[in-house]
Amino acid sequence: MERVYVIPLRDVKRVPRTIRSPKAIRIVREFMQRHMKSDDIVIDSAVNEKIWERGIQKVPPKIKVKATKEEDGSVLVTLVE
């Protein structure tokens, strides 16, 4: 099963500047767990690099990802270009 999601990251702006990018990664993981109904989430390095692109403080307001659920229940999250 493949789905494309636009994950809003605007809530990250409410946390201290020094932990925004790590919080954004946690938000992506929680969003995928909630929407794909799986606990085994694998985030691609391209998604991580996109969030960290402008540093720890300046996180993008949203990110577009493609989630692919495998037969064993694991979910691979990749960046949509």
Rank of each mutant, 00 (worst) to 15 (best):
P22G: 10
Q33N: 00
L79I: 13
V47P: 03
K23Q: 15
G55K: 06
T68R: 06
V80R: 09
S21F: 12
K23A: 06
G55I: 10
R20E: 12
V59K: 07
E30G: 08
V28K: 02
S38I: 06
P16T: 04
H35G: 03
P16A: 00
S21V: 11
I7S: 05
V77E: 06
G55A: 06
K62V: 02
P16R: 09
R10G: 00
T68S: 06
V15I: 07
H35P: 05
M32S: 01
S45C: 00
D72P: 08
V77N: 11
R10K: 14
E71R: 09
H35I: 03
M36F: 11
V47R: 02
L76Y: 15
R34P: 10
M36Q: 06
G73W: 09
V42T: 06
R34Q: 09
E53A: 12
E2V: 12
V59Y: 07
E53P: 05
D39H: 03
V77Y: 12
K64S: 01
W52R: 03
M32E: 01
E71G: 02
V75T: 11
V15W: 05
K69W: 09
D72L: 05
P22R: 12
R3T: 08
H35R: 14
N48Q: 04
R26D: 14
V59C: 00
K62A: 00
R54T: 10
I51Y: 08
W52A: 08
S21E: 15
S45T: 12
V75A: 12
P8C: 06
K62H: 08
V59E: 09
I25L: 12
K66M: 15
M32P: 09
I43T: 03
T18V: 02
E30F: 05
V15H: 04
T68F: 06
R26F: 15
G73K: 04
Q57D: 09
H35M: 11
L9I: 14
A46V: 11
V65E: 06
R14C: 10
V28M: 08
M36D: 02
V6P: 05
K37L: 14
K37N: 15
E49F: 01
P16E: 06
M1C: 12
E30L: 03
S38Q: 09
I25T: 05
V12I: 15
S21R: 11
R10V: 10
V42H: 07
P61N: 03
S74Q: 11
K23F: 15
K58R: 14
